[in-house]
């Protein structure tokens, strides 16, 4: 019984991690149609921001939950203004540019921090469940993911910015005719997506540690989750995360982490074979 509880918490943590690392990409790719191959590097930058700030003596919660997303959001806005905005509607060029960007970011962080693994210890200690012990941080990740998704949903559903952003993505000319400034909306939305990636990087840093090349480990999973989720940004990311995260975790427990990853990829291939539009493209067409 206690084993079941512990395994469920681990599975929830896997789902929450997958959802967190994918949601920034889901917004940038799902809403703006920008294929951001530097997404993994945004996570990496968030991780470095969190680690550097924590090591400088700033409270770990402030550095992971506030500073990491803030720093990466600012970097994201700068990148949108200097690179991405010239490439809207040109997906192939965007891919090349963001790939180049990802190489650049890896190179520059390697020059600054060196190619060694940096890390901080997970806060919050451990929990006892029957005969088992787990990191309390696992549960905290689940709570952070729930809070993040609730906040995104509320912002896009209820705020004026949310309404303007959704309308701009649907029809920028019409939005502009109604007095909206689409470039500002694009920059803000890209910044939010980058900031969410930074948050995920900061939250994951105590678990995985950070190296300049860690983005490669994230970007593939994030793309699989977003594409598997389909057109609905939030519902898609959540449903794909639940599916892939649970499969990965269960198979990993039954065999090894390698087979777990293979199972995740196999599940994605099978899913896209039968639902080329992703989960939300096939089931709830009207979900947002």
């Amino acid at each position: 019984m206690d084993l079941l509880v512990v395994l469920s918490i681990e599975a929830l943590r896997a789902v929450a991690s997958l959802a967190l690392i994918s949601v920034g990409l889901a917004i940038i790719f799902g809403m703006m149609r920008v294929i951001n191959l530097a997404h993994g590097e945004f996570l990496m930058l968030g991780g470095y921001a969190a680690i550097v700030a924590t090591k400088a003596g700033i409270n770990i919660w402030v550095s992971t939950l506030i500073l990491a997303p803030l720093v990466v959001a600012i970097i994201g806005i700068i990148i949108e203004r200097t690179v991405i905005r010239f490439l809207y509607g040109r997906p192939r060029d965007t891919m090349l540019a963001t790939w180049g960007l990802s190489l650049f970011l890896v190179g520059i962080t390697t020059t600054i921090f060196g190619n060694t693994t940096e890390g901080i210890s997970a806060p919050a200690g451990s929990l006892q469940v029957g005969n088992y012990y787990i990191a309390a941080y696992s549960l905290i990740i689940v709570l952070i993911a729930i809070a993040v998704f609730a906040a995104i949903w509320a912002v896009f559903r209820f705020t004026r910015y949310g309404l303007i952003a959704r309308s701009t993505m649907q029809n920028p000319e019409m939005a502009a005719a109604l007095g909206v400034n689409p470039p500002a909306v694009y920059a803000a939305t890209f910044g939010i997506g980058a900031g969410l990636a930074g948050l995920a990087g900061g939250v994951m840093a105590p678990i995985t540690g950070i190296v300049p090349t860690i983005g490669a480990a994230y970007v593939a999973k994030a793309f699989i989750t977003v594409i598997g989720g389909g057109p609905a940004v939030l519902a898609g990311t959540v449903s794909a995360s639940v599916l892939f995260g649970a499969i990965d975790q269960i198979i990993t427990y039954l065999s090894t982490p390698v087979i777990g990853e293979v199972a995740l990829l196999a599940a994605a291939v099978i899913l896209l074979r039968f639902m080329p539009q992703g989960v939300t493209g096939s089931f709830f067409r009207r979900a947002s």
Binding site: T116, T117, G119, S121, A122, G125, S126, L127, Y133, G209
Partner: peptide
């Protein structure tokens, strides 16, 4: 071996083991 595997020691301690 290597940087990625160091997270084992972190996670092991975080679980109180």
């Amino acid at each position: 071996v290597g940087g990625a595997h160091q997270s084992f020691y972190r996670q092991w301690a975080a679980a109180g083991m």
